[in-house]
């Protein structure tokens, strides 16, 4: 007859003590961070901003396809030509980055003429946050306050400053999942619900004629646009039509934003 056995828990005690200690430590750090006004968050975000900024050239080279294209096209050439071409392309990629930054800053100038605020760089990924946030390189040292409106260079409201710490601030995207905003679409006052990734949706009465490309206006942000209508879906059996809203700019391409003082 087979004997039943069980694994001894004796050896696991020390490991579980360590796990318990780390759990208590992390909870303690969370409480400390809250009570201290975000000392830990500030440090983590400064580190993140440095990593993000210092890796900008590398990411640009990879995402623009330059690296892979270079690898493919130079596979048959000799090593010297490869090196030379790689150097030229790296310089060209660096020039492109600087040119794009210059153009974006130039387009920001018209915002600075019209509104009181500051231009700030985006210093994090815009698609990595589970909370629909991203970081900008302006903080308590700059005149940035919680609730300030964040604009793209096209004057679209992209989010609100929600957490100002040290040299960085967190911006909550207006189209974060579940975030509701009162808007006006084709003259109808409705509520837009964020879907994440720069998209949102709203239910509009079927009697209202909505076209793709119509501006979606938010009265609480001074009548500024927060997006445009991307698609309209209506079913004959429903009294409402679903309007899909999108931000006309790719969030991941944002390099600079304009912070409008509230």
């Amino acid at each position: 007859m087979a004997e039943f056995s069980h694994r001894s828990l004796h050896g696991a005690t020390a490991g579980r003590r360590r796990l318990l200690a780390v759990t208590v430590l992390v909870v303690g750090l969370l409480v400390f961070d809250t009570l201290s006004g975000g000392i830990l968050r500030s440090g983590v975000r400064s580190f993140s901003a440095r990593v993000w900024t210092s890796s900008a050239h590398m990411r640009e080279a990879v995402t623009s396809g330059g690296y892979f294209v270079r690898q493919r096209t130079l596979a048959t050439e000799n090593l010297a030509l490869k090196d030379e071409l790689a150097q030229y392309r790296e310089k060209a990629a660096g020039y492109d980055v600087l040119y794009q930054e210059n153009m974006q800053l130039r387009t920001m100038l018209h915002l600075a003429d019209k509104h009181q605020g500051i231009t700030a760089p985006v210093v994090s990924s815009t698609g990595s946050s589970p909370y629909g946030t991203f970081l900008i390189g302006a903080g308590t040292n700059d005149p940035v306050r919680e609730g300030d409106v964040v604009l793209t260079d096209g004057d679209f409201v992209v989010g609100l400053v929600t957490d100002v710490l040290g040299r960085t601030s967190a911006v909550r995207a207006l189209f974060s999942a579940g975030v509701q905003t009162d808007v006006i679409i084709a003259g109808a006052a409705v509520t837009a619900v964020g879907d994440g990734g720069g998209n949102a949706h709203a239910s509009v009465p079927r009697g209202i004629v909505v076209h793709e490309g119509d501006a979606v206006i938010a009265g609480i942000y001074g009548g500024r646009a927060i997006g445009v209508v991307g698609k309209v879906e209506s079913a004959p059996t429903s009294a409402d039509q679903t309007v899909y809203i999108r931000l006309p700019v790719d969030l991941s391409s944002l390099r600079y934003v304009y912070i409008l003082h509230s």
């Binding site: 490991g15 796990l19 750090l29 809250t34 968050r41 983590v44 975000r45 994090s124 957490d163």
Partner: peptide
């Protein structure tokens, strides 16, 4: 018994969560 899993969760919240507890 991954202590670092808790650290990753903590790091993610410190990085992205707006406001404290």
């Amino acid at each position: 018994r991954a202590l670092e899993a808790i650290a990753i969760g903590f790091f993610t919240d410190m990085l992205w969560q707006a406001g404290g507890l």
